[in-house]
Nucleic acid binder design. Sequence first.
DNA 1: CAGTATCAGATACTTGGAGTATCACAATGT
DNA 2: ACATTGTGATACTCCAAGTATCTGATACTG
Lengths: 187, 187
Amino acid sequence: MSARGRKADPAVGERIRQAAATLVLTHGLDFTMDDVAAAAGVGRASVFRRYGSKRDMLLEAIAGFMDAHVAVPDTGSLAGDLHVVVTDTLALWRLPGIARLAKQVYGEAGRDPAVAEIVRTGMRTRMERSWVVYERAIERGELSPDADLWLLTDLFTGFVAYRGLLDLPLPEPEEVVRALLQGFTSP
Amino acid sequence: MSARGRKADPAVGERIRQAAATLVLTHGLDFTMDDVAAAAGVGRASVFRRYGSKRDMLLEAIAGFMDAHVAVPDTGSLAGDLHVVVTDTLALWRLPGIARLAKQVYGEAGRDPAVAEIVRTGMRTRMERSWVVYERAIERGELSPDADLWLLTDLFTGFVAYRGLLDLPLPEPEEVVRALLQGFTSP
DNA sequence: CAGTATCAGATACTTGGAGTATCACAATGT
DNA sequence: ACATTGTGATACTCCAAGTATCTGATACTG
């Protein structure tokens, strides 16, 4: 029951992965499996040997993209830290390649539960990496210990995703931070 | 140059529209044009005579769905009014049919700029219908006259869309209203 | 080494749905 | 009467995903 026969060439797999990632970035999801094989300089059959379907391939590619950097600032105040996080996120969405990718992925999440699952856990993981920001804020007394941190982060994330998805203009970071921290009622 | 020949049967067009709307609600976008013709009890050719493509048909159907009711409460306080709006929206998303539809539509918006345009203007129109709520709040001094109302509404709308799209649990209305009005900083 | 299982690449096939073309027939204008 | 256009039915083209098969390459097993 050991592995007989020719071994799968790791280089082939790697080139397919690269090609898939590149194509997703440049063409969204609108490319054929022949495109992938051609871009990877590989036989079409080899692609389907790694991935049972185009969807499987996309799932892996998308999951790969969820592993980007997350800022974990420490400016000394919640407002300052939040400003950094917000600024970073807005900057990401202003990059055309990222914006297109994000739109496509959120789009796919709307119709494919598996994609939704990937995005959901991916975003949760990303957010938890910057969790320390809020813990420090709680220690400083800027946030209530029983504040709903998921609500805080999702309000912001959802807002940006919504505006980005619909091609609505993104605001300045200061405005967002103020809204999140002070709310809208006149002081 | 006058209209010769047989006239287009308005009943046929109407049945196609109905069938399309029903199918979108029950099956998202995953149905064939034959399904539409069958559901409408109509020839397949007649469907393509009205709509040059499935996409065109969907565009019209989606635009139709954007014309749903909007609550315009007048409880006497911004918190009260906002509570009604938030509760209504959350209730909509808790209906399985609406949630599926909304996910599909937001999803399609991510890949088809025409759909994004429809959703964008549709949502803007919906929101403007309840604008009076915020005007009253400004008159009462609950909102600053130069508050960014689009930021306020989009924070909420985007949040709900984000949670809905990713199948994350929706919170209680009270929590959302408090976050929007008071913000997250400890009093 | 011989045998054989498996991968790589190429190519042809199957399948499903969108969009097109054509038919006979019905309805409405000139 | 006749031309023109809608209607339903049917058959076709086109495209991309997925499947099947073939030849040759590679690596394990005895």
